[in-house]
Computed example of a mutant assay.
Amino acid sequence: MIALLAGAPALVAGCAGATGEAPRTPRPGVHVALMPAAWATEASVEGVDGDSAMASALARRGGARVSLLSARLSRSPGCADDAACVREAARALGASKIARTELAGLGATVLVRGAIVDVETQMREQLMQEVVHDADPARLRAAIERLGERLAKPWAPLPPGPRRAWYEEPWLWVGVAAAATAGAAAGIGVALSSGEGDPDVVLTPP
Rank of each mutant, 00 (worst) to 15 (best):
M1N: 01
I2W: 03
I2S: 04
I2F: 05
A6T: 05
A6D: 05
G7N: 04
A8V: 13
P9F: 14
A10F: 13
L11N: 11
A13H: 04
G14W: 13
G14K: 06
G20P: 02
P26T: 04
R27H: 04
G29C: 03
H31R: 11
V32F: 04
V32C: 04
L34E: 01
L34T: 01
M35R: 01
M35F: 05
M35I: 05
P36K: 08
P36D: 06
T41C: 08
E42A: 13
E42I: 05
A43D: 15
S44K: 14
V45F: 10
E46S: 11
V48S: 08
S52K: 12
S52F: 11
S52D: 14
S56T: 15
A57G: 10
S67P: 06
L68D: 13
S74I: 07
S74W: 10
R75K: 15
S76M: 12
C79Q: 11
D81I: 09
D81S: 14
A89K: 10
R91K: 14
R100P: 00
T101P: 04
E102H: 10
E102R: 12
L103D: 00
L106C: 05
A108L: 09
A108F: 03
T109N: 09
T109Q: 13
R113H: 12
V117E: 15
D118F: 03
D118M: 05
T121M: 07
Q122K: 13
M123P: 00
E125F: 00
L127H: 07
V131T: 00
H133Y: 03
A135N: 08
D136K: 04
A142K: 06
A142P: 04
A142Q: 12
R146L: 06
G148H: 02
E149D: 06
E149S: 03
P154T: 02
W155M: 04
P159L: 11
P160V: 06
G161R: 09
G161F: 02
G161L: 09
G161I: 00
P162L: 05
R164S: 00
R164F: 00
W166N: 02
E168Q: 12
E168V: 04
P170N: 07
L172V: 09
V174D: 03
A177F: 09
A178F: 08
A179L: 15
T181Q: 15
A182N: 12
A182S: 14
A184M: 15
A184V: 15
G187N: 07
V190Y: 10
S193R: 13
S194I: 05
S194N: 11
G195L: 08
G195K: 05
E196F: 06
V201S: 01
V202E: 06
P205E: 06
P205V: 09
P206N: 03
